[in-house]
């Protein structure tokens, strides 16, 4: 062992360790700690039967959608991000790529109706989950959340947080197209 290689390793090793740490922490900074992988992906959508928002006398269940690829969006009138997401959902619904249904989460009926009246209603229909039980079955923890459910009633994609035009273009449209074909 001569002095030359000794001094090189003496400086290179800590430098390498430091560089590795910087890279590791840099990646860590870019990760979103709220994006928790959902265990519900590729699992059957949990069963619900809830009163419809516009017509509480009638109910709606995920079973009625078997045979169709559809989108379920969890929203609430008190949710600020939902307001931000609303125009994206409106465009998505207009494109007619897949029917969009709403799960109105822990809301007051009159508030929810006023919200849809004011902003426009992109949903085929919404159901009222007043006590949030169904949302818990769907693993909801931050409104808005959006699910893509396939023809067999299996959850194929979940978006936690607002759907953006990029997500519509890059994730939802390709996935729905593929699922509709199969």
């Amino acid at each position: 062992m001569n002095a030359g290689t000794l001094s090189v390793t003496r400086y290179l090793v800590p430098l390498g360790v430091f560089a590795a740490l910087v890279v590791l922490l840099g990646i860590g900074l870019k990760l979103d700690p709220r994006a928790v992988p959902s265990p519900l992906i590729d699992k059957p959508a949990p069963h619900f039967e809830l009163p419809q928002l516009h017509d509480p006398g009638k109910t709606f269940s995920e079973k009625e959608m078997v045979g169709k690829v559809w989108l379920l969006n969890v929203w609430a009138s008190w949710c600020v991000t939902c307001r931000e997401e609303h125009p994206v959902l409106t465009d998505l619904a207009k494109s007619g790529i897949a029917p969009l249904y709403g799960l109105n989460y822990k809301d007051r009926r009159q508030d929810a109706l006023a919200w849809l009246k004011g902003l426009g209603d992109p949903y085929q229909l919404s159901v009222s989950d007043i006590d949030g039980r169904v949302a818990i079955d769907y693993g909801v923890y931050g409104v808005p959340e959006t699910y893509v459910i396939d023809k067999r009633g299996v959850i194929r994609y979940k978006r936690i947080g607002p759907v953006t035009p990029e997500i519509v273009q890059q994730k939802i449209i390709p996935l729905v197209t593929e699922l509709s074909r199969g």
């Binding site: 992988p37 265990p39 818990i136 693993g139 923890y141």
Partner: peptide
């Protein structure tokens, strides 16, 4: 709870 929210 794990079935809904994962190991997290």
């Amino acid at each position: 709870l794990v079935a809904r929210y994962g190991d997290f």
